[in-house]
Amino acid sequence: MGQITLALAKGRTAKDSIKLLEKAGFHFPDFHEKSRKLVFYSEDEKIKMIYVKAVDVTTYVEQGAADVGIVGKDNILEAEADVYELLDLKIGLCKFSIASLNKTEIEKGTAVKVASKYPNVTRNYFKKIGVPVEIIKLNGSVELAPIIGLADYILDIVETGNTIRENGLTIITDVDEISTRLIVNKASFATKTKEIRHLIERLKNVLE
């Protein structure tokens, strides 16, 4: 069997993802979260792992630079990437939620201003509920936007809700459930079917 390239998202879920891979029998002896290396090989050399920014994982996989990727559903939804999403790894659980100051609810027919790191997710959600939306794209500290009057609402990923509460905001609705997924390049699935199915089977076994 040949080697497959796996793109692993840095950050929030990296540690748990590695743990899961170890459990499934893929060991990365050189790997360390703080390492500056970007490429790691599993002991049996079956997996070449590239360690990249979470928002870039879908790009690597969609373009075929990586055969498979491990990344949060939040990034997959935002990227709208044309990839297969074969497995829920059930780690990194959180939600996409909408929060506002003073529990202001969304009214149908009234345009809203929403700040988010996820403009595509935001657009799709408001399209679905039929509310006109103006999106303010921010790259961090989204909670600040309603406080200083930049936006009426925020749409962000929420784990415990602490950051939201500490900044005086209230969650008014949940949009979607998020967890870490295994994604696969369509061409790789066709040309490296055996290797990829093997990886999936082994991950599946430790998930149950």
Binding site: D82, V83, Y84, E85, L86, L87, D88, S179, R181, V184, F189
Partner: peptide
């Protein structure tokens, strides 16, 4: 629902 179903099948999105 049909549109979602189609999209999930096309994307082999087994969890969703």
């Amino acid at each position: 629902d049909f549109a979602e179903l189609r999209r999930f099948i096309q994307g082999k999105n087994i969890p969703e």
